[in-house]
Amino acid sequence: MWRNIASNFLTLSIVLLIALAGGIAWGKREYSGPGASALAQCVQVAQGASLNAVSNQLAEQGAISSAYIFRAGVDYQGLAGQLKYGSYLVQPDASMEDIAGVITEGGPSTCGTEVIFRIGVRANSVVLRDIDPETGTYEERVKYDPAAEPEPETIASAIQQPDARLRIAMAEGVTSWQVVNGLQAAAFMGGEVASVPAEGSLAPDTYEVSAGDDRAALLAEMGRRQEVILNQEWEARPFGLPYASIEEALIMASIVEKETGVPDEREMVASVFVNRLESGMRLQTDPTVIYGVTGGEGILDRGLRRSELDTPTPYNTYQIDGLPPTPIANPGRAAIRAALNPVETDFVFFVADGSGGHAFARTLEEHNANVARWREIEAQRGENTESPVQTDG
C-alpha cells in the first residue's frame, strides 16, 4: 500500500511540476509576447505609486492582459523598485515587458499635457498641447499672447497637473533682453534675474523645466549650452577666417542669424560678410544698425530712417569699419557653424528677392539691378519695409 501511495504521490508531483513549468512558460509568453492593446496608450505613473497600483491601473485601461503576470514579470526582472514618475506613450501591441521598460527607464514625459512658453523674436506665446495616442503627435488646444491676454483657465489648470510637462522654447535670433523679459513673464518660473546676460551668450533651444524652477539657474544652463556649442564649432573651423577671436566669430554668427531665415542661405550670407571683411569693405548691414537703435530691447517695427543710417554709432556698420563691438542677438548652432564655415564665393552684395530669400551679386552693377527688381516688388505690394542691404561699393 505504501508503495502505491508513494507511486501516486510521485506521479502527482510530476504532473504538478509539468503544470507549473507549463504555467511559467505561458506566463513568460504572455509577459514578452504582443500586448493586449492594438492602440497606442498614454500610461501615467503617479508620484510614489506602488507596483500593485500601477499594474492594476494598466489592466483597467487595457494596456496589459493580467496585473498578476505583469507584477510577477517586473519582480523577476528586478525592476519592482524602479518605477519612474511621469506620463509615457506606449506603442500599439507593446508587450508587458516593453511597458515595464518604459515606466522604469524614465526620462522626460512623452505623453499627456505640455505647456510651452515660446520666447520669439517678435512676440512671446504660451501653447497648451495634448498628445493624441493614436498618432503619437501633439495637438494644440490653446494658445495665447501673455503680453496682451490674461492666462486662460485651461492653461492655469494644466500647469497645476502633477504630470504636466513644462518647457521654455527660445527661438534663434532673440536678444538676451528678450529672453530675460520672456522668463519674467513665465508665471510658472520662480526666482529673480539680477542682470541681463551678455548678448549672444545664450543657446536657442527647448528647455525642460518644473514649476517654480529658478530663472537665473535656467539662464546659466542656456549659457553653458551656448559655450559648449561655440567651442565645438570653433575647434572644428577651417584656417584662414578673418576672425581675431572666438568672440568675433560669435558676432558674425549673430549677424548671419538676423540677416536670413532661409537655412540654405546661411553659408552664402556668411561668405558675403567674410569677403567684405577680407577686402576692407564695410559690412553695411541693417540688423546691426537696428541693434544700435534699440539696444536689443524689443524690435524696431518700422524701416530704418536715413538719419539713422547716417549717424555714427558703434553698431552702425554703414559708418564703422569691421565688426560691431558685440553680438546683436543669440545665434543658433546653424548660424555659428555658417559663420565658421562660409562657402567660397566672390559675392559682396545681396538684397531681398521677394521670395523670403536674397539675390546675391559680385559687382555693384549687378547689385543695383537686383535692388531695382526688389523695389518693383515692393511697389507692387505697396510696401517699403527694408533698406537695401550692401548698397555701397
Rank of each mutant, 00 (worst) to 15 (best):
L58W: 04
A53Q: 11
I64N: 00
A63S: 13
S7E: 09
G27V: 05
I64L: 05
L12V: 13
A6H: 01
A59Y: 01
Y68H: 04
A19T: 13
I64T: 00
L16H: 06
N52C: 06
A38C: 05
L51C: 04
S13T: 15
V15T: 14
Q61E: 13
N56P: 15
Y31E: 00
Q57E: 11
E60Q: 09
L10A: 03
P34Q: 08
G48E: 11
G22M: 04
N52G: 12
A59G: 01
L51F: 06
L58D: 01
R29S: 15
A46R: 08
S32N: 11
N8R: 13
G22Y: 10
N8I: 12
Q47A: 07
G22D: 05
E60A: 08
I64C: 03
Q44A: 13
A59K: 01
G35P: 02
L17M: 05
F9V: 10
I64S: 02
G33T: 07
A38V: 10
C42N: 11
F9N: 01
Y68F: 10
A25K: 14
A53E: 10
L58M: 06
Q41H: 13
I5L: 11
A40K: 00
G35F: 06
S66M: 03
G35Y: 02
Y31K: 02
L12A: 15
A63K: 01
E60G: 08
V43Q: 01
L10Y: 04
I18K: 14
A25G: 15
G22F: 07
I24E: 07
I14C: 13
I5V: 05
Q61V: 03
R29G: 11
Q47M: 07
R29C: 14
Y68M: 10
S66C: 02
N52I: 14
G27F: 09
G27R: 01
V54I: 09
